[in-house]
Design a protein around this nucleic acid. Structure first.
Lengths: 239, 239
DNA sequence: CGTGGAATTGAGGTGCCTCAAACCCTGTGG
DNA sequence: CCACAGGGTTTGAGGCACCTCAATTCCACG
């Protein structure tokens, strides 16, 4: 059941049986959320962190004028709010974009891992660091890429991340979001989001139907995106 | 000499004398960098992390067309690349925006802290988590704020962060960057950056001369920025 | 004084916005 | 089985934000 978590953490360094057992003991209490529901509320002080088992979620902030911005997308095997363990107060919300099955990690147990399992602690820390690396990549995309390139980059990133947790199907993956939601990822209006998607479609590198993205030309998609996966730390080495 | 680091880490939770001593032992080897020099090169695999003692630095990425985007600004008391300890390979560079004095932390020593000092480990982890929180706020600013609001938000953030490490002077702080460099923070052209600055100046909430920003109306600046410092975790509590 | 980098201003073009309408699904009730 | 409702997608049109290219001014410094 924690397959995705093991795949996710295990791609950066090897996970011992003992560590897998510790994680098995850490994660407890499954929950389900419907699409559109808040998994974690902004301003709350959760006593546990949440791991996604199935589904797609996103972190977001809402501004006074009602504008919403997603700051990340979370896939199976991702902790949506591991940092809340130390940050304490949520300064943003986490919403389920599709039906989500999650499982919880008590902060008290996380704390005891930091007291007794340094290597596992480093791997969990690493998980939050990759989160940060993805944020930096998003900042670059928002600031200096064309919108088409930004979208291409997002697709590259999602494809690679989903591949790690075995949620791709050949060159396609499920992306259960509306164009309005995607617009809140890229920081665009719905109308313009639609035109950017059309442009990428018309260039023939991707297809998108039934909430499923198919990469038709991976080479060219990476080129449009200037995608370099280094920031995802996909090498297995001692950490 | 590690005053800024102690102020920075100590604002979130209390730092014991023992922990201060550990940090004193950790940090060794002072270096200086001139404005414009790379402190850490993109693609490198540093064996140590770098703490800023004095000066202003920034993380950045450069795209194929030459466009540059800063992904963060680093002030005294900040680790510029603490995450390299676990991420291993730098996927971006760090540049000195003003003359910088720094001091180093061997990754081997950092590792031993994670083996023997869990509370200090959590505080260092927290430091990287706040980094991430700042990134999320930047993403929101780039995606959904007006450019004037974005700039105002940046000034609010810098003022608060600099205040923590005692680098403000009443309501002013030193900001040794050109407008072209600021443009690479906000993701704008130099020309438009200049117009955004003018707009904020003309609204009477800030003054900016001799590389020094003076906040004339803190209330109103926060209002324009919709600034809520929660994300900076400026509360002292057990972590 | 002269010189080079930074700041500022002007002007014309493009990207992205908003408002608005049409179209296309899919699900639901008669 | 059809009609309709409602959300999502697509298209059109006019306007503002931000771009690029270019010129001018300002300043610090040799």
């Amino acid at each position: 059941m924690l397959e995705s978590l093991f795949l996710n953490l295990g791609q950066h360094d090897s996970l011992s049986d003992e560590e897998q057992a510790l994680l098995g003991n850490l994660m407890a209490g499954e929950r389900s959320f419907a699409a559109g529901q808040d998994i974690v509320a902004s301003g709350s002080r959760p006593a546990y962190s949440t791991l996604i088992l199935d589904g797609l979620a996103a972190r977001y902030k809402v501004l006074a004028d009602g504008g919403r911005q997603f700051t990340s997308l979370q896939v199976p095997g991702d902790f949506v709010d591991l940092y809340a363990f130390l940050l304490k107060t949520m300064d943003h919300g986490v919403i389920a974009l599709s039906p989500c099955r999650v499982i919880l990690a008590d902060h008290s147990k996380l704390r005891s891992i930091t007291e007794r399992a340094p290597h596992l602690t480093r791997l969990l820390w690493l998980d939050t660091l990759i989160d940060g690396a993805i944020h930096r990549e998003w900042i670059v995309a928002m600031g200096r890429r064309s919108k088409v390139s930004h979208l291409a980059h997002l697709f590259c990133e999602l494809f690679v991340r989903l591949q790690v947790v075995k949620r791709t199907n050949d060159m396609s993956f499920h992306l259960p979001v509306s164009q309005a939601e995607l617009a809140d990822v890229l920081g665009l209006s719905v109308v313009h989001m639609n035109r950017v998607i059309s442009a990428l479609r018309n260039s023939g590198v991707i297809a998108w139907a039934n909430h499923t993205v198919t990469i038709l030309d991976w080479q060219k998609l990476q080129q449009i995106a200037e995608f370099d996966p280094t920031y995802l730390s996909m090498t297995r080495e001692p950490r």
